[in-house]
Design a protein around this nucleic acid. Structure first.
Lengths: 214, 214
DNA sequence: GGGCAAAAGTATACCGAGTGCAAAAATAGC
DNA sequence: GCTATTTTTGCACTCGGTATACTTTTGCCC
């Protein structure tokens, strides 16, 4: 996106990278992540195994490199918010927009491709582990953003960050689970919004009397 | 502990298991997790590689099997609380007791062995990933306990669980980090208690006006 | 357009984690 | 002591990932 054409060499590298990734996803979706070897992926992409590993450091990266920028998403949202506004509100509104736009990260996208990809990831423990790793990264980034833009003390920022990330993740997982069970995204939408509002209210007001809502 | 002696066969298996684990930990502590191969561990324990894998399904399990029961700890605490009391308070008091007793899980144990083990784990990405996995298990168990013993609705239970687990983990990590930096546990104790109280207050009262305390 | 240095790709052999299989050893119960 | 069962072992194998040494492709300068 940044510099669309930057010499033949660069363009060819991009194409090779895309070819490998596409071949990998296609094979993984068809046969399952575990049952496809990197050698098979390399063969399908017409590339040597060594070259594959020059583009993607691990087998898991063939899948998760597409999701990598979500790691900094919450932090970016907090940094980009209107000055003087509540960081938590900014994250909430961003999440609600994700729901409206059926952003896959919100768990509310029911395109067959997305559903299959989600299922594929949750069927492979090593991929789940990578997702958990993303969570840890998101917590770190968000904590930093809170420290720097609100002037939250270090520990408080870290605590707020882990709570916010954990809650967002739980909401998305819940949506994804329902959609995987056959519920259409449009049918789930209102409930998802209500659940998100409830969850963010819990974050704002605490766990003290949680039985009131929902 | 349960059935201390249950036939020679059983006792010997226990001994073998302990021998393997001890040899593994000793080697890992001395040379680092990554730089010791399972073959070396097997040799040190005077056991074939095949036998080692009969006792421990993966290399990581050689380390983390000792921490496995912490996965259900928060859930057990919630289930075992005085009827009618607040689950969050139960978890808080349990965590504070962990600090007083210098329970390694609280991050406040500065015995050299514990410090080295902590460092070893954080130096090995695959071990860190396993710890994150424990977190996920703890969340699931705690959510279940909250649903069943308080009558919290499913989503609220899950949201509370992920927040509580995330906060406990963050507190422990913060303590461990400070101790790894040379601070003695006794010197850290009061600060750790204050931080824990602050964190649980945040959980109870929400992130709304967090700048007041600490 | 030809030549050349650097970058990219390849073949091959290798390491370590983990598994399948069948033979060998240890143990329990008689 | 004998036999059935469990445990252990050796070996060969798969798969993810890496080191090395080599060939091909590309950018570029003349």
């Amino acid at each position: 996106m940044e510099d669309a054409k930057a010499g033949l060499r660069e363009r060819k590298k991009r194409r090779t990278r895309a070819t490998i990734s596409d071949a990998a996803i296609a094979l993984f979706l068809e046969h399952g992540f575990q049952r496809v070897s990197v050698a098979q992926v390399a063969e399908a992409a017409e590339v040597s195994k060594r070259t594959l590993f020059a583009y993607f450091p691990t087998k898991e990266d063939l899948v998760v490199h597409r999701l990598a920028d979500h790691e900094t998403e919450a932090a970016r949202v907090v940094r980009a918010r209107e000055p003087g506004t509540d960081p938590l509100a900014a994250v909430r509104e961003h999440f609600l927009r994700g729901l409206r736009e059926r952003d896959p990260i919100s768990g509310l996208n029911d395109h067959p491709q997305v559903l299959r990809l989600t299922r594929m990831i949750y069927d492979a423990p090593s991929l789940v582990a990578r997702m958990e790793g993303f969570k840890a990264g998101a917590e770190r980034e968000l904590a930093l953003a809170l420290e720097e833009t609100a002037d939250t003390p270090e520990l408080t920022a870290r605590l707020a960050a882990v709570q916010i990330v954990a809650v967002q993740w739980a909401l998305a997982q819940d949506n994804a689970r329902r959609l995987a069970g056959g519920e259409p995204a449009d049918a789930r939408f209102e409930g998802a919004v209500a659940d998100a509002r409830h969850a963010f209210a819990l974050l704002e007001n605490g766990l003290r009397q949680p039985a009131a809502q929902r």
